[in-house]
Design a protein around this nucleic acid. Structure first.
Length: 352
RNA sequence: UGGGGCAUGGUGCAACGGCAGCACACCGGACUUUGAAUCCGUGGAUCUAGGUUCGAAUCCUGGUGCCCCAG
């Protein structure tokens, strides 16, 4: 009997994933990670509160599987949260969920799974792993196009995929909810998770002001010619393409660039946003093999962006340059660019 | 302290003397395992004191503030 550790968040998706694995005959161990325990944010924090842990525990009891809580708050703080704060301090817009998947779920949790002799790590992500006849593994989008989460999983390697199960990969969200209801799982009525789990319902601006005050200094807002338009309260409160918080004008203005050296926010009208080229570094190619020739791919530059067709040109040090057919707005350093061909995920790297 | 112009929500602009509108911001909601974007919705204004008029954001006079030109 194959043994699998399933990551339980207390939500619907991971609950159904666990239930399905049990029904498929796996020896299942439920695991929840305690990732954040700053005082005062427990009641709002949806992914690792006492309430969500209780939901996960009661699910495990219902399924009659062992349940363990791993306290990884220190790892999470020093890796995920620190990268989040450092990214904003550098003027980037970091994506902590990607980092969390890489270092906590397929890092700490996978190490734990191996330590107890498990064959697999399973999560409730909407994604598919396809084993090829030649022994290679491919990562494919989840069957439900509205819920596909491969954007956050593009840093996985062959080693990870060989030992990863996504029980929800072939399902749609409505089916998952139905399965949860039919089996009366404790989390059946839980709302979708949203926002950064460690913010605990706070605005991320408040969080940054507390943990990264150096990134929250007032400064000027100008147009591209340098004309002063107003004041901002901190560059970290903005991201490329953002309108919120930009001074009103006859025409809507958006963030064009963050001038870190001068702590200056540069804004422009919508039609001046965007670029048709992009550089991506530190790319993880799912196949484990870096491309050497140019190729066409669909590229997602944000988690919920429509894929854009572009020509990918390999460069040095596992970087590439992408030239898009049409200019793309909101190309944002610190976010991930993920390469697709149809349903298949080729890889992903950081936008620089 | 000569001349000219302007003054309307937080911001930028509309409104022949006839119910003060629009855009953006703010706020609420939808969407969403990052930040955004996007969609729906609420609230909020005629610088001031008089005058003309049935009726004034609009016309007239004084005040106040700002801008431009000339010193």
């Amino acid at each position: 009997m194959k043994k699998v550790v399933v990551a339980l968040s207390g939500g619907v998706d991971s609950s159904v994933a666990a239930a399905l694995l049990v029904e498929q005959g796996f020896q299942v161990v439920g695991a929840t990670m305690r990732l954040w325990n700053a005082p005062g944010c427990d009641q709002e924090n949806r992914c690792c509160t006492p309430e969500t842990r209780a939901l996960a525990a009661s699910l495990a009891e219902k399924l009659s599987i062992p349940f363990i809580v791993l306290d990884e708050a220190e790892t999470f703080r020093s890796v995920v949260v620190q990268q989040f704060l450092d990214g904003y301090t550098r003027g980037e817009t970091p994506n902590p969920c990607v980092t969390c998947n890489r270092f906590l779920k397929w890092g700490v949790l996978w190490d734990y799974a191996k330590s107890i002799g498990a064959d697999y790590l399973a999560t409730g992500h909407y994604a598919r792993v396809l084993a090829q006849p030649n022994g290679a593994y491919e990562l494919w989008k989840g069957r439900d196009p509205a819920k596909d989460q491969t954007y956050f999983l593009s840093t996985l390697t062959q080693e990870h995929l060989a030992h990863t199960l996504f029980p929800l990969g072939e399902l749609r969200k409505t089916e998952v909810r139905r399965i949860a209801a039919e089996r009366a799982l404790p989390a059946a009525d839980q709302p979708e998770s949203q926002d950064l789990c460690f913010l605990g319902g706070r605005d991320y601006r408040d969080f940054l002001a507390e943990y990264a005050p150096q990134a929250v200094r007032p400064g000027p807002i100008t147009d591209r010619s340098g004309k002063l338009l107003g004041q901002h309260q901190g560059l970290a409160f903005y991201t490329i393409g953002q309108r919120k918080g930009v001074p009103a004008a006859a025409q809507a203005l958006y963030v064009w660039k963050k001038d870190i050296e001068n702590n200056r926010l540069i804004v422009c009208p919508a039609e001046e946003l965007g670029a048709d080229t992009l550089r991506v570094t530190e790319i993880n190619w799912i196949s484990g093999v870096s491309p050497t020739e140019e190729f066409q791919a669909e590229v997602k530059i944000r988690s919920r962006a429509a894929p854009a067709l572009g020509l990918v040109t390999p460069g040095p040090d596992s970087s590439v340059r992408v030239r898009f057919e049409k200019p793309l707005r909101d190309i944002t350093p610190g976010q991930l660019a993920v390469f697709y061909q149809g349903e298949q995920v080729l890889g992903g790297g950081w936008i620089s």
